[in-house]
């Protein structure tokens, strides 16, 4: 197979970006891209432009109930995505707290509730929950589906939600730094109530703990958001 030079590749970069090459030409182009970052960048930029072109496609109103139909299909798919073979929780010991790894928040402080507002308390983790049976666990995922940790819920009114995110460093690296304004913890319960409270300041060797004035079985989801409302990771509880 002839070796393709940068000048040749750049000449046909739009064809590569649009997937128009076939056969030997395509093979030669891909071989070149494999070893040339400059040309890879050029092709990626052109491919991005071609994708953005789709934003100018005509709009049309779908039939009534379209969104509900999509959501119903997602609900039906949920068990498939979480089935064995899907990304597993980072720590297979459900209910146990990973140790010796960096987690989202700092030091364990003995049983001090920092905030108790509107039925939701946000506390630095204490040992108070130790020994309490875990009612449900949630795999914490980023918006891209990457597993970054786990949350557990236990107890009855108040229920304690504990969040461990050992993948936090990787998230911060990927998304460009932590929010200086701090983070928010959002807990939803089955009656549709959603409570959002500031999380305790970031530290280096512990997880976040939140209590909510509801039975553990009623807690459905927990999310970590930044001050702009972006969801950094979230999880849906499943009885376990």
């Amino acid at each position: 197979m002839a070796v393709m030079r940068c000048e040749q590749l750049r000449d046909m970069a739009p064809d590569v970006a649009l997937g128009l090459l076939t056969g030997r030409e395509r093979a030669a182009a891909l071989a070149h891209l494999e070893r040339c970052e400059t040309c890879r960048t050029e092709v990626a930029a052109l491919a991005g432009t071609a994708d953005e072109l789709l934003l100018a496609a005509p709009e049309a109103t779908p039939p009534d109930g379209f969104a509900a139909g999509v959501l119903a299909r997602l609900a039906a798919e949920e068990p498939v995505r979480d089935a064995p073979g899907a990304p597993a929780p980072i720590d297979g010991d459900r209910g146990a707290r990973p140790s010796g790894r960096r987690r989202m928040v700092v030091a364990a402080v003995a049983a001090v509730v920092v905030l108790v507002v509107g039925g939701l308390a946000v506390a630095l983790r204490s040992d108070g929950g130790a020994g309490t049976e875990v009612a449900a666990t949630a795999v914490m995922r980023t918006g891209q589906g990457q597993v970054v940790g786990e949350a557990t819920v236990s107890g009855d009114a108040p229920a304690a939600v504990e969040i461990d995110v050992p993948g936090w460093d990787a998230m911060v690296d990927r998304w460009g730094g932590a929010s200086e304004a701090g983070y928010l913890l959002a807990v939803e319960t089955s009656d549709g109530e959603r409570t959002v409270k500031p999380a305790p300041g970031a530290g280096d060797d512990d997880g976040w703990s939140v209590t909510v004035d509801a039975p553990a079985g009623d807690v459905t989801t927990v999310s970590v958001l930044d001050d702009e409302g972006r969801v950094w990771c979230s999880g849906r509880f499943r009885a376990g």
């Binding site: 934003l55 999509v70 997602l74 918006g143 589906g145 989801t221 990771c233 979230s234």
Partner: peptide, 21 residues
């Protein structure tokens, strides 16, 4: 991000925002 994570409200908002396109 919420849509992918299974947040019902975010999912509904995401679909309604882009369904016409």
């Amino acid at each position: 991000a919420g849509y992918a994570a299974g947040d019902d409200q975010a999912a509904a908002a995401f679909v309604r925002r882009l369904e016409r396109k």
